[in-house]
Design a protein around this nucleic acid. Sequence first.
DNA 1: CGGTCTCTTGACGGAGTTCAAAGCTAGTGG
DNA 2: CCACTAGCTTTGAACTCCGTCAAGAGACCG
Lengths: 194, 194
Amino acid sequence: MHGPLIKYINDYATTPLTGSEVELIKNTFVPKRIRKKQYFLQEGEVCKYFAFIVKGAMRQYSVDDKGAEHIVQLSIENWWAVDRESFVMLTPSVYNIDAWEDTEALLTTRADILNLYNQIPALVEMARKMDEKHSIANQRRLNASISFPAEKRYSDFANCYPEFLQRFPQHIIASYLGITKETLSRIRKQMLKK
Amino acid sequence: MHGPLIKYINDYATTPLTGSEVELIKNTFVPKRIRKKQYFLQEGEVCKYFAFIVKGAMRQYSVDDKGAEHIVQLSIENWWAVDRESFVMLTPSVYNIDAWEDTEALLTTRADILNLYNQIPALVEMARKMDEKHSIANQRRLNASISFPAEKRYSDFANCYPEFLQRFPQHIIASYLGITKETLSRIRKQMLKK
DNA sequence: CGGTCTCTTGACGGAGTTCAAAGCTAGTGG
DNA sequence: CCACTAGCTTTGAACTCCGTCAAGAGACCG
């Protein structure tokens, strides 16, 4: 169960985890099943857990005044699911996170992970690199959202994350891109002509 | 000259910097003047330096096919200026960073800062917290850009960063929000009526 | 089967863009 | 002290992309 997480950390760190470090991690990250449609986090709650996805798919979204969902993050295997703002600041979250497919995840709390940071340098390194990667991806997405028209955003997304097109339906992708499902449908039709 | 940076780090870290650590930092961060309109980074270059702004204001933006600028980041005193993607991955940047006002900054390279991370735990801690904060801010902005209409994005921005309204002209703010200067002008007119 | 979820299509409306022109402001030099 | 310029903001009119609403067509699953 913890294999993918250990591999993930080792891939990011310069020196591999020792046996005792692996044990620590196994004791700290607790396996949890989240069934399709089940909430991992609901709006208004504090996000207590940081989840590493071993299998499955999750989505993070806000809901506006009119009840419309806006997807801010999609995650599949070897990704993380968490509302960082709520997790770090201990403030109520404005987001919901739920499972789009039946999911197996590894959960840890803020206290436990801070504790691990003190004991496992490789984990600190991994966290830093992960944050950097995350930060970069967000920067790109932000730049795309203010600089590019919908069609280019979609084709960039399709190139960059082809797996996601298989795993999530179109109206979810549309919401992630900040457009409606109808607009995405029309864009795809346009693109076929070329 | 290094005072604000030392203070900044101490504010983020749990234990204050020792005298020798302060010395290390002073030797690693090199002061640099960047005059108004002068480039700190040009599109196509690799971003070699990480800048802490002691005094002044800078902007980071991309330029699209039609020559229009899209502001992705604005920074003033006690903020950082860098294209993280280029800095970390050593890839040519798609952004420009230039000084909007005469600026005094403290510069360091990737090699030097990685080196410092090994010697100053407080700096690692500061970097982690800074990344977290940055990540959170980006998440908010992203969510805003796909969830909220222009007027709400502007009023949120005005509440959150009132200093920026003083320091940057309207057309810069408009670009940062992903709208045209004309639209922002009309939005402000609307808001005055209320 | 019937129900739920998903995708498509059309007609209409609205938020925001584009283009063009004019007004405003602050700094510069005579 | 005034004239001039450059950068910034405002305004109007036409247009465009995208959202909204509504209806229908597949597809999948119990």
